[in-house]
Amino acid sequence: MATDKTSLQLVTNGILNENPIFRLVLSMCPAVGISTTVMNGFMLGVAVLFVQVFSSCTISLFKNVIHPRIRIPTYTLTIATWVTVIDMVLAAYMPAAYAKMGIFIKLIVAFAIITMRLEMFACKESVTASFWDGVGMGLGFMFGMMSLGLVRELLGQGTILGHDVLGFKPLLFFVLPFAGFFCVGLMMAFFNYIELAYRRAKRA
């Protein structure tokens, strides 16, 4: 069974319709834990994008030789391998960013979103389609993390990407660790509100 969607549709699907953070409510831990700045969101987004794309491609490449009974262990092994690789690469070449993300890079291995995409998409589709799906999901995750980071950084520190834009710090509250929960909740409510308003407008 091959998907009839174009690559663009696959990518936008990951970013909007099935956004891992705001729509599927998966991989919430880093969304709450380290979304304090745009940069953090971007870095983790890159790592997830890398793992998702490589795992999707690997699985779809080998989909015919993977025995259905050991499907899940194979997925886990694939993801763990790529996570280890990206972990080592980041530790070697970007020690400062790596130190900030701490344990979360290694925890990508337990992200439900990646396993889910492998099970639902990559094990049935062609390599190209899986690649674009992986890119879409990765970008969707990155988009979610960065938009959270943007809100928290702007409101908490008055900066964007470390550049001072407001000149003052509106609400220190948003930088504090637990504010991640409030921030995610409020943003989800905001997206819901837009959707409700859109539907109401359509009906009228």
Binding site: T84, V85, M88, V89, A91, A92, P95
Partner: peptide, 19 residues
């Protein structure tokens, strides 16, 4: 998987120590 990880380890370890 072991080969991939081992390879990545060998390639990055030197750079990591150096950095």
């Amino acid at each position: 998987a072991g080969a991939i990880m081992g390879g990545a380890f060998v390639l990055t370890n030197q750079a990591k120590r150096h950095n």
